[in-house]
Amino acid sequence: MKVTLHIWRQSRQSTKGDFAQDGRMVRYELDHVSADMSFLEMLDVLNEQLIHKGEEPVAFDHDCREGICGSCGVVIDGVPHGPERGTTTCQLHMRSFKDGAEIWVEPWRAAAFPVVRDLVVDRSSFDRVVQKGAFISVGTGAPQDANAIPVPKHDADRAFDAATCIGCGACVAACKNASAMLFVGAKVSHFMHLPQGRVEREQRARDLVAAMDREGFGNCTNQYECEAACPKEIPVRVIAEMNREFVRAKAVEEPASDKGTGGHG
């Protein structure tokens, strides 16, 4: 099959003042595309041709190419990861497109995800949010036996549904407001359903929301584009859960004490 591609090319990194830099949509024609190719393999073919022509290849993030590492992700015809539901870009195949299709390929677009080059964006904002509380504060050592903490299957499944997040950023890219609520909600939801995670639930909810807000993501307006774009189909339930956790955590928050919390003898 044959396709016409419109791809965002940007050679310089985005800055706060100039996000788009020299970025523009560039048109490419590509012939002899096999329907069995993945979308990224199609881009590989394009890149090989570009190199032969002496043009710099299109930069795009990718690694595992089996839908789990979360590296890849481009917006295809306005939809993150393209037209198939529950699918990462690397798992999208050209059989999802018609012969002769015109395809628009753009990077995730969000202030919190500056473009590094072409289709590659910087998602370190996600990491910084996680560093502020998406964990259980347990060090390496000798915790109790794993089966000493029974977790009802239903709770374990709910935690798992949230924990499947691959951190690709499609939720932010899909959201009309570039909000990261689905991502952060998934972290809150994962831990709130586990007994181990409930110990520091209030602190976690407050810290994660504050960290998210600092990164310049937008706000949730409950349109659920994130859920529809999520390759792991994480439900917006996690956002409702985070809202609840946050309000509760704010309500029970006590003013900081000046007595200190140290307990060392």
Binding site: W8, V75, G78, N177, G218
Partner: peptide, 20 residues
């Protein structure tokens, strides 16, 4: 306003999946 600022460059091709 915050939402607008969160996406400094608009998509060349806009699409909506399920938002009403």
């Amino acid at each position: 306003r915050a939402n607008k600022a969160a996406r400094p460059v608009a998509y060349a091709k806009e699409a909506t999946i399920q938002a009403s």
